[in-house]
């Protein structure tokens, strides 16, 4: 009788230990498997050139549309997302700053890793480039030293993610303008013409030391030659 009880207790203990393992595994797996998370929902906007509307502010004529999927949205902040996939090339987010406060936050698979507001804008323009480490090195190498790039370059920890654009309408009369400001941000994939010319100068650079060369091809060899020397 006692032996039987021990067996049941043993089975229960095993069950509880298993429950712990299942619990931890499930919690860790939820972000990857979820179909309702922001990354999966933002995926559909990858081909767009402008942010996908996540939360559009209610304006005088119309109420906030039902497409909003934020659980508790701020009724005075317009939100849009641009998904990126760095396998297709670096992602460039360009915003023109205006009277309204604008912020860009870059989210990877594990959460937001960078955020910048319109206060960082240079001459009213905010250019954010999200790239992988390899693309960053390539961009750095192809930089012209006399004409430094004004882009804010962010190395992403994961290839896929999304950029969140938030524009704050301080007054109800600014809501339409805030909605428009979100749409005015452009999210483009820097076409592979940046990584593409790279292999050619890489093979050519040891053979062609003179930095002064025809204008279209000059930046990559010059950049390559300088760090080496």
């Amino acid at each position: 009788m006692r032996l039987v009880n021990l067996r049941v207790i043993y089975a229960t203990a095993c069950g509880l230990a298993l429950a712990g393992i299942v619990h931890v595994a499930t919690v860790l797996a939820i972000p990857a498997l979820s179909e309702t998370d922001a990354l999966t929902r933002a995926r559909s906007s990858e081909s767009l050139e402008h942010p996908q509307r996540v939360y559009t502010l209610a304006t005088h004529g119309e109420a906030a549309p039902a497409e909003a999927w934020l659980p508790i949205p701020d009724p005075s902040v317009a939100v849009g997302v641009c998904a990126y996939d760095l396998d297709d090339g670096p992602m460039r987010v360009s915003a023109r700053t205006g009277a309204m406060m604008l912020s860009l936050a870059v989210h990877g698979r594990k959460g937001a890793f960078y955020a910048v507001t319109d206060q960082a804008a240079v001459r009213g323009a905010l250019d954010l480039v999200v790239l992988t480490r390899a693309q960053y090195d390539a961009a750095l190498a192809s930089d012209d030293e006399n004409e430094p790039s004004r882009d804010v370059r962010i190395v992403a920890p994961s290839d896929q993610g999304f950029v969140v654009v938030r524009v704050i309408a301080a007054l109800p009369s600014q809501r339409q303008a805030a909605n428009d400001a979100v749409q005015a941000v452009s999210c483009t994939t820097d076409s592979p013409d940046e990584p593409d010319p790279d292999p050619a100068p890489a093979s050519a650079s040891p053979a062609s030391p003179p930095p002064a060369s025809p204008s279209p091809t000059s930046p990559p060899p010059a950049g390559r030659a300088k760090p080496n020397g």
């Binding site: 939820i30 999927w69 659980p71 936050a105 960078y114 955020a115 910048v116 507001t117 969140v164």
Partner: peptide
């Protein structure tokens, strides 16, 4: 992930 929430980033 379950709620589809996009929380505010620290710099935001």
């Amino acid at each position: 992930a379950r709620r589809g929430e996009v929380p505010l980033a620290v710099g935001e």
